[in-house]
């Protein structure tokens, strides 16, 4: 039954661009899917207690590497993407290995990753001769009035086409989540999150398992950053790195729920629609209203509903179906 529902949902999703919906709706859809993908990537780590406040670093590395290679060396994103992902993986290993080796967890892990996020932000600003600094940068356009699609530059002006790219990425994220969920690594990570020494004593290679999930999360996040850059065709340090962006990821995931597979995506939809709704209701002029509400909600969520909206719904559903089952939901 679950499989059929998934299939119907997917078909409905794929049909969206063919229904003649406006570009605005497509834009919302694409944004939700890309960020849903990034948030899913973050949650791969976050759900095992590896709370990173520096995922902006990987977004920034992804987006800026590809754009810089294309703008300054004329290297196609086809080559730039593997380079950027490799760079993100390298950084993840450089930070992750010593962290996990020396048992840096909890607050300390969050603060080390926060430093990483700030380093990338500062580097982008400091290298302003190449990156354009805080003003941001536009990938050199391969599009024009006649050319609506460039395979070499991976640029496309049609939102409908990009929608499918975003769906593909998002499905990739969900697939990785499922693979992790059904692997031995999941049990190892859950054990390590509960009791690191105990897990190590029964033969779990804690450092290695944590590093694997971190590398996976970093690589996918970099991909998300690249997708965002190629879609918006404009990036700046604030939108793809730094503490504010990193906190935004954490907030959306907490709102949606990081322990269920669709939770992060739900968080993406929820936060984006909230921001858009407020913008429509109050106009452009009221700056800061969405943040005020976000912040308050984040506090309320953590205090009263730490498993997130979708997590709570899934648990209610589970308990209704199997009132005796003590396990919480893991969709």
């Amino acid at each position: 039954m679950g499989r059929l529902a998934n299939l119907i949902g997917l078909v409905a999703l794929l049909a969206v661009p063919m229904l003649g919906v406006s570009d605005y709706v497509l834009h919302l859809g694409i944004t939700i899917l890309i960020w849903g993908f990034v948030y899913t990537a973050w949650s791969l780590m976050g759900r095992f207690g590896l709370v990173s406040l520096g995922h902006g670093a990987f977004l920034g590395i992804g987006a800026y590497t590809v754009t810089m290679l294309w703008n300054h060396a004329g290297i196609s994103p086809w080559l730039g993407i593997p380079v950027a992902v490799a760079l993100a993986v390298l950084v993840a290993v450089l930070i992750g290995y010593p962290c996990f080796r020396f048992r840096i967890t909890g607050h300390y892990f969050a603060l080390v990753t926060l430093a990483l996020g700030e380093i990338v932000l500062m580097l982008i600003v400091a290298l302003r001769d190449w990156t354009g600094g805080s003003l941001g940068v536009t990938p050199a356009s391969a599009l024009s009035a006649d050319v609506s699609f460039s395979l070499v530059a991976l640029q496309v002006s049609s939102k409908g086409v990009f929608f499918y790219v975003a769906v593909g990425l998002w499905l990739l994220g969900l697939w990785v989540w499922k693979r992790v969920d059904s692997s031995m690594a999941r049990y190892a990570l859950e054990a390590a999150n509960e009791q690191e020494d105990a897990a190590a004593s029964v033969g779990v290679d804690v450092t290695r398992t944590k590093l694997t999930i971190t590398v996976l999360s970093a690589a996918l996040t970099a991909l998300g950053g690249i997708a965002y850059g190629q879609y918006q065709l404009y990036i700046n340090p604030e939108t793809v790195s730094g503490i504010a962006k990193s906190l935004e990821i954490v907030f959306a995931v907490i709102a949606g729920g990081m322990y269920v597979r669709l939770g992060p995506t739900f968080g993406a939809a929820f936060t984006l629609l909230l921001a858009e709704g407020l913008r429509v209701a109050f106009g452009h002029d009221v700056h800061g209203l969405d943040g005020t509400i976000y912040g308050l909600m984040l506090v309320i969520f953590i205090i009263f509903m730490p498993e997130g909206i979708l997590g709570r719904l899934a648990r209610l559903w589970e308990t209704r179906r199997a009132p005796t089952s003590p396990r919480t939901a893991s969709a």
Binding site: D290, G295, L298, I302
Partner: peptide, 9 residues
């Protein structure tokens, strides 16, 4: 972190 977002906004 939520309070941070709230106060800043």
């Amino acid at each position: 972190g939520g309070v941070l977002t709230f106060m800043q906004a």
